[in-house]
């Protein structure tokens, strides 16, 4: 492909003018819709001058404050959050939301790094935390009774910390609001053995879990 110097200059000019032209004009966000007309900002400056130093501020009264509080409540009750709570089998009480996650879903055997296929679940929980503007979240790790007690204790602590880390790193939750604790095998949900003393794999599976308690904001 041969290029005459004239063509080259034309293309170079296009290259320089194209982005600056975009920057000079306010454009709408990606999608279908109008661009902001070029004179809109000048009109806005004039409008601002007419408003004076208070810029048209209206006091938010008690009635408005109540509406704002109501709006927050609506947000927490929005369809998406309600659906997430249902999917997570969450228990919602007056003061908190309780979510129990199977350790087998979150982690591989004997591991404490979050499985990639568990991230969708954690994303839903992060959405709940944000919607309720929770001031305090407790993440507690629990294991079954198989293996040495001190090993299980350490594993449960590491798993709780891993969940906390995920919320902090991937969902932007303030780490100061999350408490991570490990209880090892000391707080089983169900017995680890059958009444005759034989091993109960199903019971142990239920005990390998992470409990998340999301305190509601007042």
């Amino acid at each position: 492909m041969n290029l005459s110097p004239r063509c080259f200059i034309l293309l170079l000019a296009l290259l320089l003018v194209f982005p600056s032209g975009l920057a000079a004009q306010e454009t709408g966000p990606t999608g279908d819709g109008p661009e902001i007309p070029p004179g809109a900002h000048e009109k806005a400056i004039e409008a601002l001058k007419r408003l004076g130093p208070e810029r048209g501020a209206k006091k938010i009264d008690f009635h408005m404050a109540r509406i704002m509080g109501l709006a927050r409540g609506i947000e927490a009750k929005s369809k998406k959050i309600q659906e997430a709570l249902r999917n997570l089998n969450a228990e919602v009480t007056e003061t908190e939301i309780r979510i129990d996650l199977s350790g087998d879903i979150l982690f591989g055997f004997d591991r404490w790094d979050i499985r990639s296929d568990a991230e969708e679940t954690l994303k839903k929980i992060a959405g709940v935390i944000r919607a309720y503007k929770s001031p305090q979240i407790t993440v507690s790790g629990h294991t079954d009774s198989k293996g040495p007690e001190d090993y299980n204790q350490r594993l449960s602590e590491k798993r709780a910390r891993a969940v906390k880390q995920w919320f902090t790193d991937h969902a932007g939750i303030d780490p100061k609001t999350i408490k991570a604790v490990g209880f090892g095998e000391t707080r089983p949900k169900v017995p680890n053995t059958h009444p005759d003393g034989s091993d109960d794999p199903e019971g142990r599976q239920k005990n390998r879990r992470v409990e998340i308690r999301i305190k509601k904001s007042r």
């Binding site: 109008p34 809109a40 004039e46 409008a47 501020a57 704002m68």
Partner: peptide, 24 residues
């Protein structure tokens, strides 16, 4: 737009014809 800290709210600016500077 609400400034909750100072308990004030602000409406969309209007042009001299009383039309909101918003679109579409």
């Amino acid at each position: 737009l609400m400034d909750e800290t100072n308990q004030k709210k602000y409406y969309i600016l209007k042009d001299s014809d009383g039309i909101f500077i918003a679109g579409p």
